[in-house]
Design a protein around this nucleic acid. Structure first.
Lengths: 361, 361
DNA sequence: ATGAAAGCGCTAACAA
DNA sequence: TTGTTAGCGCTTTCAT
């Protein structure tokens, strides 16, 4: 190192990163020779290779993947925008997307926008210039995100807006809610409560019986649960049939259920926004000494593997996440190849939940 | 659509994707005008913009992100190679890496190589041409992976090989094992069994008392557990103190523990390879009617949030995954900027587990 | 074993 | 409002 200090290394690190020409100049060779050294190609004296590699290291040179990609031909690169890798639902979905994309030789760039107060729009904004297409849980930002993609394909998940010009995969919450509530009613459950997390879809403007914002799935349940007692007047029959948790976490759901049990000890069935929150409900019930499912049934939503590890095992409205991932990537594949045209009915898919009965209901 | 059928669209879709020149030619404008249309730039008649956009859609044109990146300046792009997004440990880690990378304006390309019989080396092979650096759980492939990176930074996790030329983050299993076994012995546990999964680190060649391959962490525990009964002869004192599960899953661990309880009903403490497998152990013990932790203690390894949702809550050797992610990205940052030199002691970090006592031990 | 030239597809700067 | 010119940094020929 010291012996070569006389070479013209810039005293202050240049703002611009070193290029192949900088290395070539420093080594006194042509850029092809640098290419040969960097890529371990034949036709270069090993002493030259060593010298070039050493210089490259000193100059902190990294070949530009853009220049290289430009000349060598690129892979498809897909952006995946998800709200929170810490919620087991999303990695389960991501896993399926990555698997399907990998099978096609694509790359997946993941942006978890759950940290630092970022929004789905931020994520797409960052992703858009660098990827060929985006798959994401974007909520109401989907419309604006589509603009950022300037014509490239976008698949919005859990999105059912009729006016949306991109591709979408929606979930049939009305049907899922009806299956769940029907099952619990047939069991003779009298006091069914849905634990909502209005953060995701509250922008839809649907309100619960008390006039508070509700998630999309929350409104599906609210509609069913409010109709429960036909004997009463115009006032909603079950004003407390929907409870709002403070966050999309087991801890928040646990607190909500604790408060609920305090207020309405006769609750005999709890349906949660998702499996993670159902796990919190399970904890609250266990702590309150309730026997699940005898005293109170618990139903989750998602069907993630976590449910099978809980005690009792979680009954849930399961989504086939591999199917969701496969559908998203297939949609993209069709859009990218031109086999599917945007604006046709083909780009709006609906996937159904299935009632998975395990131990908790 | 039909009215413009006479334009010279290729009858058969060309093998090569359309370029900006194809669109420009089709629209009878210059490429600059196409750029303006595609990127929503000003200085273009909106009728022209419409026409160009329409043509672009027909030709299925997508701007090359490489050409664009080349001219606009690139973000740093980091590859993240992980074995299985379905194991909650990895998304927890990935989440932290993505958060740290995002804060620096970097992109993260995730490759989950757990599907389709792919190896860590496959993952790096795919990633290498497209990223500036790689972080990964590569096991024994780390050495070969480094070659594929041709000089670009690589951070290998859970890797402690002395001869490794890249950066690495190792975990101090000897210390962790000693903390765990010491704690259980002080509790008076007599018959402590470690449930190994030799898939990951079996290549190190360490053998258990029965001569079978062991994971790195498995050997740390085997060493301690074999020394347990100093009264016996040269033959290993506790030949069954290490059990091997058939997979890195709760289900595999559950089966292993079921067999163990059959064979050694006096087992009063189980330590698992990781939290997921500990969850399986918990299920097996509950099913066998054992009271955890009274009859039998269970200790996991990882410290993922899942543990707190189990019944009883899982005691574990926790790793601060946010610290691990932060360290990996900091290492990369230093390497990329030249602030840290490869080959110095600075690139080999060690992170310690901490004994987290919750309900199960 | 090495070098020179050409061009990948795009956008910024400048003309018209 | 539109077109022209000049690269971005690299790898591929093809020469030497």
């Amino acid at each position: 190192m010291g012996s070569k200090a006389s070479r013209s290394l810039p005293a202050v690190r240049a703002a611009k990163p070193a290029t192949i020409l900088d290395v070539a100049a420093a080594a006194g060779v042509s850029r092809q020779t640098v290419t040969r050294a960097m890529n371990g190609m034949p036709g270069i004296k090993s002493s030259t290779r060593e010298r070039v590699l050493e210089l490259a290291r000193e100059l902190n040179y990294t070949p530009s993947r853009f220049a290289r990609g430009l000349v060598q031909g690129s892979h498809v690169s897909v952006g995946l925008a998800i709200p929170d890798l810490g919620n087991p639902y999303y990695p389960a979905f991501a896993s399926s997307v990555v698997e399907q994309a990998t099978a096609r030789g694509w790359h997946v760039v993941v942006d978890d926008f759950g940290h630092g107060g970022r929004s789905a729009l931020d994520a797409v904004e960052r992703l858009a210039p660098q990827v060929d297409a985006v798959i994401g849980y974007l909520g109401a930002d989907a419309d604006r995100a589509l603009v950022l993609m300037s014509g490239r394909p976008l698949v919005a998940l859990d999105f059912a807006d009729e006016g949306f010009a991109g591709a979408s995969i929606a979930f049939d919450y009305a049907r899922a809610a009806s299956a769940a509530v029907g099952y619990l009613r047939r069991q003779g459950r009298q006091r069914i409560v849905y634990i909502d997390w209005p953060g995701a879809g509250a922008s839809t403007g649907t309100l619960d019986p008390l006039g508070r914002g509700l998630s999309v799935r929350g409104s599906a349940f609210a509609a069913l649960l409010s109709d429960a007692s036909p004997g009463t007047s115009t006032q909603s029959a079950s004003p407390h049939s929907v409870v709002r948790a403070a966050g999309e976490s087991a801890a928040a759901a646990k607190e909500a259920v604790e408060a609920l049990l305090e207020r309405s000890p006769d609750t005999d069935a709890v349906i949660a926004f998702n499996d993670l929150m159902a796990a919190g409900a399970l904890k609250a019930l266990a702590q309150a000494g309730r026997n699940v499912p005898v005293d109170c049934a618990v139903l989750g939503m998602d069907g993630i593997p976590l449910g099978e590890l809980l005690t009792p095992e979680l009954s849930t409205l399961g989504l086939d996440l591999r199917e969701v991932g496969r559908t998203a990537v297939e949609l993209l594949d069709g859009l990218l190849s031109g086999a599917i045209q945007p604006g046709t009915p083909e780009v709006r898919r609906v996937i159904r939940h299935e009632l998975l009965l395990r131990g908790s209901a």
